[in-house]
Design a protein around this nucleic acid. Structure first.
Lengths: 238, 238
DNA sequence: GTGGCTATGTGACTAAAGTCACTGTGCAGG
DNA sequence: CCTGCACAGTGACTTTAGTCACATAGCCAC
């Protein structure tokens, strides 16, 4: 919501025309610009240091950021777009956990340990996304030198932990109907669009259930006037 | 496992007789002693500082450490015993998440934020337990001054986050039979006793299901020779 | 050793979710 | 305009889990 003016300002600054409001990679900013706009809470010296060491990495929608079992090479900060984090089951199946948005970071990639740490989750760019990659061996110094950095790390862990708590709550205490409703509401809140372009199959994947179950529940919600079903999208009435 | 010699040594030091191997509160150590034995990774100055500011709080088995909705007043380090963390559902029901053991801390209580933060989970002492309480406003300074402290905080969050991931995995991808098996194995690993003194009802509560379901699954496992059922305890054959 | 309490065993039923098989439908590309 | 295809709708059935009702079985206290 409050990100849009800023984004527009940056584009204007560069004198670029962006089609349909979507980020095109031509419009990519520099590390410095991303840090200033997305991570304003960092001290200027910290931003300068990060800019010096980070790699700006654009990802196309659908591209994988992180694979289960993959070793971390760097800390990832999300600068633009949206990353979807989900857990994979050993025998197939997946389960959506939460999104990472601009200004947030992947908690698991922030451990400042020597031992190689492998990822327990999958992350994929849901739209065209830009991430800043920071070498892991920088973490220790940042932690020691910059107060805003360790606040950021702690806050990242805390908020991701609490997201997981909410997820657990739903899975344990709620039925599929409530989980579906929460899922749709969540989508609506994030995107701020009444038309959610998503198929029943995609929802079923995210909730780790089958399409038929979702179709039936959606139909029931439609009959209650809580939404309208269309091909390839769902019209949400919050 | 490796805690016992230490514990015994401390008792001997104090010339106390401890009945049945259980900690009696007469045998309680000083903050300094707990810190030295349970948190040896902390710098000596950090331990000294913590000892100066902390309160040693004994809890009887079953006593509540943390209530859902309660505001944090202090950071809690577990020095002795075992704390059980679980989530409560809005309409009743509970769900076991994990244990906190000596040397560990409650992640949620470590946030160094000004705003009042209320607990999202319940914690109860599973056996007689000793916790060290640290004033929240100390956190900031500790974080800045002591490297081993922020390692500890980060590691606490990381490990609790990963515990939650495992929990989610089981709930999402596994049936009740596998979850029960994992639960029992977990109990066995933690206690290192083949006889798990627990009732079917307690298990059912922890897994948020009904006693009958647990009884039936246990019976099935008994028929497969994976355990032997008794009144009030279960004999585990790993 | 008997009464009472708690823990456990079990059959029968209900509910929720998952599976299978097949039908309908909007839409893009020839 | 029709055809192929991905998406969506639906009935029938299976499986898993949760509920209800009641039977048994240890165990402690008196």
């Amino acid at each position: 919501m409050n990100r849009l003016p800023l984004r527009v300002a940056c584009f204007v600054l560069q004198g670029l025309l962006v089609s349909g409001g979507l980020l095109t990679f031509d419009a990519m900013l520099t590390a410095n610009e991303y840090l200033d706009s997305r991570f304003p809470q960092f001290e200027p010296e910290l931003r300068a240091l990060l800019a010096q060491h980070c790699v700006v990495r654009p990802l196309k929608a659908g591209e994988k950021m992180l694979q289960t079992g993959q070793y971390f090479r760097s800390t990832m900060l999300v600068a633009e777009g949206r990353a979807k984090l989900y857990r994979e089951g050993e025998e197939g199946g997946e389960f959506f956990m939460y999104y990472l948005e601009p200004g947030q970071a992947c908690a698991l990639s922030m451990v400042c340990s020597d031992r190689q740490q492998s990822s327990e989750v999958m992350a994929v760019a849901e739209e065209d996304t830009v991430v800043l990659l920071l070498p892991l061996d920088l973490m220790d110094d940042l932690m020691r030198q910059f107060r805003s950095w360790y606040y950021f790390v702690i806050e990242t862990y805390r908020s991701r932990y609490e997201e997981l708590l909410v997820v657990i709550d739903h899975v344990i205490f709620k039925g599929m109907d409530e989980r579906l409703e929460f899922y749709l509401k969540n989508q609506y809140d994030k995107l701020q669009k009444r038309d959610l372009s998503i198929t029943h199959q995609q929802i079923a994947n995210d909730l780790n259930t089958s399409r038929e179950v979702i179709s039936r529940l959606l139909k029931k919600m439609e009959q209650q006037g809580r939404l309208v079903l269309h091909r390839n999208y769902i019209e949400w009435r919050g």
